[in-house]
Structure formats: structure tokens, C-alpha cells
Design a protein around this nucleic acid. Sequence first.
DNA 1: CTTACCATGTAAGGCGTTACATGATTCA
DNA 2: TGAATCATGTAACGCCTTACATGGTAAG
Lengths: 179, 179
Amino acid sequence: MANDKRMDCVILGLLCHEPLTGYDIKKRIDGALSFFWNGSFGSIYPTLSKLTESGLVIKYEVNDGGRNRLLYSITDEGKKVLLEWLKEPVLKDELRYETLLKLFFGEELGMKGTLMHINRFEEKIKTNLSMLQMFEENLKLLQDEETHKYYLLTVMFGIETYKAYLKWCDNARKLLEVR
Amino acid sequence: MANDKRMDCVILGLLCHEPLTGYDIKKRIDGALSFFWNGSFGSIYPTLSKLTESGLVIKYEVNDGGRNRLLYSITDEGKKVLLEWLKEPVLKDELRYETLLKLFFGEELGMKGTLMHINRFEEKIKTNLSMLQMFEENLKLLQDEETHKYYLLTVMFGIETYKAYLKWCDNARKLLEVR
DNA sequence: CTTACCATGTAAGGCGTTACATGATTCA
DNA sequence: TGAATCATGTAACGCCTTACATGGTAAG
């Protein structure tokens, strides 16, 4: 059913804060959003066209010295649509960890292989955690803008979660190595 | 690219433990696996046919009093393929939480709406957590089978994670309600 | 006797990714 | 002058879900 990644809502949400190009949107998605969302150019640009057609955003060309860029900004109608969606209850929170799938079948792989996956997972998480902690510090410095409070909420979520993952890594290793 | 949900691997993994019907497989996916994986009949049955054709599983009909059922079991070749996949590094661990997306755009929605989402999220998590805790207790009673140790690993992951979520809910509310 | 669950499948269609195509600009 | 990044787009293709179709069995 329609619009699994809700690219339209993501774009409207981002444009609420400031006008952006498609390329900018991709950077935002790969940045602060990347811990809980993702999306590709192949869905960003077509969605921008659709949103322009239906009058939820306006496109205008700008030329600031460099090459021409297509900047998009949200309309009042767009804000209304965004708000409608924001008010609706969440439909789906989904976690899909291949790591856990492999661990679930760990008996076939054996202890050594399983430990390998746990260690690799731990490495990735440590990297992500320190990135999030940098985000967090930056956000705490920028307490002036109300928006940042909401960004901080999602960053805190990531930090809390990743810390729990690391704790689990320790416990998991202990459980496997016992006996 | 190919096989995002790795239904073939999921099926091979489950059949490693015991022969199952397509319907059984769906139940497993909706049960212990559901916290980190999912899949529908529309992908299970076609995958079973494909696996049968390529000789990784064998199909046989059984009639145990009731109606005929199609039971599948894994072949040596199938085990080899599964093991190959299990050894490979994990490609993707993905979290996609609409809740976080809505919180990220929380300034548009305002504090009240945001708190609503947090509370609804908390309710869901509490329910899931108590389910997982029941799973955990059952698994601890069945320590005889080595397999259960690996299942326990994934259940522990869920429990640890959900506890962190609940802790975050408290912190998030505090942050929002301050001032 | 009817509801719930067991059981197997197919088809349409949406959705989004990857890969391709193209080219400007900036910086070293 | 070459690499990296900025920048915009399209097309093919795979993947999976939803919905539909069908019917048996068990339990109350």
C-alpha cells in the first residue's frame, strides 16, 4: 500500500525548516535522519515533481554565482498536509537486523562464527554511537532554536539504544563463552 | 538488489531445525522472529517452490489423520548454502521508526502531539517487552537444547533494547516538559 | 452450525533501489 | 588535469505486500 517510505512527508518536513534542493534533501536524509530513515535520489526527485504538481511545494531556480539550482519551498497547503500526517498515529516502527537473523540460526554457524558477527556488530555500533554523541553536543550548543529540542529527542533515542546494544554485546559474549 | 528479505535463508534456517509446512514457517516468522524480521505468505510459498526446484529442500506430502499437508525439509546442499550465507558478513541492519520521523518534525506538531506519540510508543513497547520476557522464561527452562541458547541471544537483545526505549520515553517527556 | 484456525496458493500492482546518463564547479 | 563533490534526472527491474480464491478441520 501507498508510499512505504513516505518520501513526501519527509520532504515536506524538511522543507518546513528551510528551502532546499533535491541534493540537499539527500544530504539531510544521509545525515541526521540516517539512524532511523533512508531514501535515494531515485525517489527524491520524482517525489519533488509530484509535490510541485499538487501545489504542496513551489520550485524556483536560483543562481548564486555557481550553476543553477532548483530550490524547493513548502506552501501553506503543504504545511497543512504535513500537519495532518503528523497528527495521525504511527503505522509502523520496523527493525530489521540481519545480524539477529544470523544469530538466531547461530547453532548452524557455531560459536566462533557467531562471536565474529557480534564483534563486527559492536564495532559498527561504537562508530555510530560516537557520531551520535557528536551530534548531541552540537545540538546542546544550539539550544536557542526550538527545533533542536526535537532533533535532540531522536539523537537521544539513538544514543540510549546503542548503549543498550553494547551492553548486550557483552552479555551475549558471556553467554556464549560459558562452558 | 536480489532478495531483500532473504526469505530463502530464513526458510533454510528454520528447516535446519525441523521439517515444516509453509504455514508453519509463517507462524515462526510471526512468532520468535517477528521482533527483527517479517514476511508474508506471498513470498513464502513461491520461495519454497524455488528452493524445491533447486534441490535445497525436499517436499513431501503427509497425512496425519487430518488433511494433507506439504512438509518441507532441508537437504545437505541446502545446509551448505545456508552455512555459506551465515558465514558472510552482515550487509544491512536497518531500523525504520516512523515514530522517530514524526518526532524529528515535532516542532510543527507541537509538544502535546509529540507527547501523544511518545506515550503510544511506550504502550506498544511495554506490551512487546512483556511478550519477550515470557519468551525468555520459556527458553531458560529449555536449556537442554543448544539451539535455545541462540534464540535466547536474540530475545535478550530485544529485552535490553526495549528497556532502553522505556528509559528514553521518561527522559524524552522530561525534556519536553521542562519550561 | 458457525467461527476460528489450518493450509496452499496466485496475481496485480506499488514502491523504491540501483544503475545509468550527464555535466558543472571547486580544489589540490 | 584529475578527483571529489555538486546537481538533476530517468528507466529497468526486482521485491514483496495485499487481496483474492478456495477449501478442510476442530471445537464450542
